[in-house]
Design a protein around this nucleic acid. Structure first.
Lengths: 340, 340
DNA sequence: CCGTGTTTGTACAACGTTGTAAGCAACGTT
DNA sequence: AACGTTGCTTACAACGTTGTACAAACACGG
């Protein structure tokens, strides 16, 4: 059976509140009283009922992290960092899988408001600012691409700059026919838009003409989509000498499809990704990518949330940028052969 | 501001309990009353306070899933299925990262007992049965390898049979010097022990002698450990013609290390894994593996938990087996070259 | 020895919800 | 016309905790 403060109090011969004081580390409790209470707590293996505590305090000590899919490595890695960062503040993280669709994300954003949660870290794929209105003042931090003029705090890396940098890296290798994979038609694909913008900017800087035929769209950003996009390019007669994929899973799919087509990477086609997931460090060949500082992103997000919870609910939304690093690996290694 | 039942009641001109009845779908509410209440709910954007509801009901509607690490793909994929299966029962899943160490797992198992949770699905790496004593009757389902004589329900696949089957598959390809990667010295490595047992059984059946030198241990089961194990084998002069890795991430690391050593897979060395993670379907070459039915594992676990919660807390622990399938891919393809 | 201030403990109410018991109509039956 | 029945609604208490207000015990200086 489960014991309550009252049981402990009776056993220790004190009032309920005194036990509560001991549990909460209140200072003015005589050492011998404290000892008696602690003994009773140990004997009964007492644990506070968090529902009751939460009800009383109006806080739950739980924050939610809403991501599109957990088995997309980028989000799993991010989740790990968020859990760690939240633990520093004594918070538990409830991880919510939205599925990425606009309707599901709306449900997540709204339905999660059913209390039990002090704040929300949200990595939206399809959601726009308007969908986030009815949160009733629950503190929220958005990750990833900016939801334009959103009412919430925001943490991201500079997507345009990063995409430009990695595209420039490909150009620096002497590649000229650089395909881009992951573009999205839908108005929701904010990431895609920003990364495409960086890609075109780099081309323009280098004086390379933009070729519509080199840009392949991908509805989702899974391995299968990357593979499909490459196959589509090749069967339509396009022969790129480099491929910039808008994330690493797309790139891993692309590697696969290029391999199946008998093309060598990086000799025939250089490949670059985005996100720096663990897989890309062990793939054959290893994957050149943009490595966002995920740990820092998580830390910043949690701290923004902590700030809101600590008081300034009504401060204007803040936009923070996390650092990233271009990380060249075998898939864009120069020279005729990758270094064994 | 947040609204309460009382606010809705005042606005609709009824009692608090009537509003509660409407919210909970109680039948005997006159249609016009119901309409008035629902209107008031909508106007105020009322959401029930779950802490209060939980306190009153003694249930939280939340179950926990404790896994060693979220960014191990197998656990991420499993988590997705558990979340889906739990949603069917109206439960939210709190995902807990234990880190896999014995001490951390003990903390997870015990500390999670601080209410807020109706039950626990636990995938222990290092924990033994004794560590699970102080759960105070909280229903728990264990995933993965059996914690011997544990007091809890249990869902797993037949590891020995699966390992034997995939080893036999390698033998069937004509391979004779089959390395095993992932063995563990520690008493905790239950999975490792079972899979090793299947490996030796298959060798024995085929009349192949067991060679200690072909068995490489790995403290963790990450890609880096798989790569390190292969490098270790090769530098110590061992020349296997096949490698059975105790999970897929080890195998992906092994593929990488073999590639770096200039060995071709499957021509020179066949490689097999275990778990059927998404990566293995797109790696170069694609990975032969044992595919446990993760969806079914998750479903069974949730249903066992549901059974406990519904009543029979004291029924004897049950052991359920989930199906698996041997899934041959390129990394063990027969013939001189993998199919283009 | 008294007044004053500090320490230590208590009783009570409140957080927002739902189960229980009971009240009050309106109805059809005797 | 009195009587259960049924349908709908309400008041009240309880879930386990903590904040507030206060009382009792104690320490100290004048």
């Amino acid at each position: 059976m489960r014991h309550r403060l009252k049981d402990v109090a009776e056993r220790a011969g004190v009032s309920v509140k005194t036990v509560s004081n001991v549990v909460n580390g209140y200072v003015h409790v005589r050492p011998d009283t404290r000892a008696r209470v602690e003994e009773a707590i140990a004997e009964l293996n007492y644990r506070p009922n968090l529902s009751a505590r939460n009800l009383r305090k109006g806080r739950t000590g739980v924050i939610a992290l809403a991501v599109p899919e957990l088995d997309i490595p980028y989000f799993a890695e991010l989740a790990r960092h968020v859990v760690s960062a939240a633990a520093v503040h004594g918070w538990t993280v409830l991880i919510d899988q939205t599925g990425g669709g606009p309707e599901q994300e709306r449900v997540a954003a709204a339905g999660i408001g059913d209390h039990m949660i002090d704040g929300l870290i949200f990595s939206p794929l399809a959601l726009t600012a308007d969908d986030l209105a009815n949160l009733d003042g629950m503190p929220m931090v958005l990750l990833g691409e900016r939801v334009d003029h959103g009412p919430a705090d925001h943490v991201a890396i500079d997507n345009v700059a990063a995409a430009r940098e990695i595209t420039a890296h490909l150009i620096g290798l002497g590649r000229r026919r650089i395909a881009a994979i992951g573009s999205q038609r839908t108005p929701e694909g904010a990431s895609a838009r920003l990364r495409l913008a960086g890609y075109t900017a780099a081309l323009a800087e280098a004086g390379i003409g933009y070729d519509e035929a080199l840009v392949a769209s991908a509805s989702a950003w899974h391995r299968a989509d990357g593979a499909a996009a490459v196959r589509h390019l090749l069967t339509s007669g396009v022969r790129p000498d480099a491929v910039f994929c808008f994330n690493d899973t797309l790139a891993l799919g692309a590697l696969r499809a290029l391999h199946e087509a008998g093309l060598r990477v990086p000799d025939d086609v250089a490949v670059a990704g985005f996100d720096d997931i663990e897989d890309g460090r062990f793939s054959v060949p290893t994957l050149t990518t943009i490595a966002p500082d995920k740990e820092r992103i998580a830390k910043l997000a949690v701290e923004l949330l902590a700030g809101r919870l600590a008081g300034d609910r009504d401060a204007p939304p803040r936009e923070l940028q996390a650092p990233y690093r271009l990380t060249p690996r075998e898939s864009t290694a120069p020279g005729p052969r990758p270094p064994r």
